[in-house]
Write a protein that binds this DNA or RNA. Sequence first.
DNA 1: TCTAAGATGGCA
DNA 2: GCCATCTTAGAA
Length: 200
Amino acid sequence: MMNFHLPSAQIVEPNWLARLSPEVAPDLVGCILVRQFSDGTLLRGMIVETEAYGPNDPACHAYRRRTQRNGAMFGPAGRTYVYLIYGVYYCLNIVTDQEDIGSAVLIRALQLQSIPSWVEPHEGAKQHRVAAGPGKLCKVLQINLTLNDQVLQPGQPLWLEHRPPQFIPNLIQTTRIGLSKGADLPWRWYLKDCSAVSKV
DNA sequence: TCTAAGATGGCA
DNA sequence: GCCATCTTAGAA
């Protein structure tokens, strides 16, 4: 009733994410990832590239069994799964499907709504690519292990907003990047002709 | 306990 | 094309 006339973002709810990861991954392209820092500052970016990981998928961190690292993947949909890769970078996933099913969608690239002040000016013309890659986007959004297994909802450090219904993304579906196992599955999606994807 | 490999990214 | 860097998981 109240505020019905105001433009309000449609928040992505856990139920919407409680589907098979290869169904959720393309639907997340075009959605907005919102980062709220401890001082209240907001940073928004459109998801332009995703990958799905799920059961019976040898590339999935949860493929063999539940471990301390991958525990969040077995939790309910709508939470985060953050892990450290190569001892250097963090990667952000959105947990999908039912509880006890180890599955998630890796967020591989964002197109930022604005460039935060802490991005070095020398990035210059490449500023549109500061979140073009799973490690890069975690760096610019200041995502680390403290954001692992966190609920995605407004007021938390991270949440998701639906893409506008009139925006129909032009999606390319192809194989995932950087894998030695499960490399044949076409479970990567990205926005066609988008300069902010990790790799064309 | 030991070790190979990794859902990366930057630089030559 | 090469490699820094270090955690993790699986093997022994």
